[in-house]
Structures are given as structure tokens and as C-alpha cells.
């Protein structure tokens, strides 16, 4: 564990907590893309399948449980919570996210570290996470006002992946040259997608 990765995990955790706070405190999810939240839940379920089989560390297991439960809680709120679900603007959140799931799955079948169920699920989750933010970015660009909490949520999500890129560079030079090209390329794509959001976010 290096500082970049820890900072990345904390920033990621913080982004999820900011979103939960916004939804819980304001009882509203206006401006939040439910499709992006559903994609993130699929990302965590596909990636943390080894939660019960591979024990890596207490930190690793606790964080996996936190990410899975928080993303499920957000999706549940946006679908089932009587007050919150009314504030979801369905007509605005129109991105066909099924296409993203299918594309990530096909990519995972072709590009993976080993052609096993676990590795294909892992690669699928990495590719899907890289594009999961798209419905949210489309919603932000459509919406007139980017409310602060949603803007901060996307900002922290972008920062988390940027920290991970520093983490991969650090590990490359300290731990030897293991092939992490799946993580690297997807991480670069993911951070790149945020670039235009950061541009508008800071100019706003």
C-alpha cells in the first residue's frame, strides 16, 4: 500500500459519501444519473467477487463491503425511496448504458489476463468503470445548473483515478514491471473522460 493508492481509495470513498450525504440530507437526487450509479454497482459486484474467497487484508475487505453496500444503497434510494425517487429526472438520464455493459463485456472476453471467469469479471469491471461516468457527464452537460454536491462528487471520482495512475507509476518503479496494462489503459481513459468535466467545472 502506497500513499497514492491510499489517497485514491480515500478520495473514492469520500466521493461516495458526498453523494450519499447529498441524497440523504436533501432527500433529492436531482442531477444525479441513476444509470451511472447502477453501472458502479455492477462494477463493484463484478470486481469484488473474490471478497469471500481471497483474503488480502482487513482494509481491503472492509473497503469492498463499504463500496458494494454504499453503491447498492444509492441505487436503492433512487429506485425505492418514496421521497428521493420522485426527484429523479428520468427523461434527462437517457444514456443507453446497456451499450456500455455489452462493450465492456466483449472487451473483457478479448483482452484479459487469463481466460478464467474471475479474470474476465475483473477485466469487465475495469473497462466498465472507465466509462461508467458517461451517463452522469451527459446529464451534467444537459442540466442547466450543476449543483455543488453533484459537481464535487464527480470531481472526487476523477481525482481518485488520477491518484491511482500515480500509484501505478510508483509501483512500476518500485515493484518491478508487472503487466498492469489493463488497469493503466482503462485508468487513463477514465481520467481522460473527466478532463473536459474538470475544464468546465473549474471555468464555471
Amino acid at each position: 500500500m502506497n500513499a497514492f493508492r491510499f489517497l485514491g481509495d480515500m478520495t473514492h470513498l469520500f466521493s461516495v459519501l458526498v453523494l450519499l450525504l447529498k441524497i440523504y440530507a436533501t432527500k433529492s437526487c436531482s442531477g444525479v444519473s441513476r444509470k451511472t450509479q447502477e453501472l458502479y454497482m455492477v462494477v463493484f459486484l463484478a470486481r469484488y467477487m473474490d471478497l469471500f474467497t481471497d483474503y488480502i487484508s482487513l482494509y481491503n475487505s472492509v473497503m469492498k463491503v463499504v463500496f458494494i453496500t454504499s453503491s447498492a444503497a444509492i441505487v436503492w434510494c433512487m429506485r425505492r425511496h418514496p421521497q428521493v425517487r420522485r426527484t429523479y429526472d428520468k427523461e434527462q438520464d437517457t444514456f443507453r448504458h446497456v451499450v456500455l455493459v455489452a462493450a465492456a463485456f466483449v472487451l473483457a472476453l478479448i483482452f484479459n489476463e487469463r481466460f478464467t471467469f474471475r479474470e474476465i469479471c475483473w477485466a469487465f469491471s475495469i473497462y466498465l468503470e472507465a466509462v461508467a461516468i458517461l451517463p452522469q457527464l451527459v446529464l451534467l452537460q444537459r442540466g442547466r445548473n450543476v449543483d455543488n454536491l453533484t459537481g464535487q462528487y464527480v470531481f472526487f471520482l476523477g481525482a481518485y483515478r488520477a491518484f491511482y495512475i500515480l500509484n501505478w507509476i510508483y509501483r512500476y518503479f518500485t515493484e518491478g514491471h508487472h503487466s498492469r496494462w489493463i488497469s493503466w489503459l482503462s485508468g487513463l481513459v477514465q481520467t481522460g473522460l473527466y478532463a473536459d468535466f474538470f475544464y468546465y467545472y473549474f471555468l464555471r
Binding site: I56, M63, E113, E175
Partner: peptide, 10 residues
């Protein structure tokens, strides 16, 4: 850990 190809990152 790398040998066992387990992914130790979140």
C-alpha cells in the same frame, strides 16, 4: 502475491 494473479487493489 503477483504470482497468484490476485488483484490486491480496490
Amino acid at each position: 502475491r503477483e504470482g497468484s494473479h490476485s488483484h490486491d487493489e480496490l
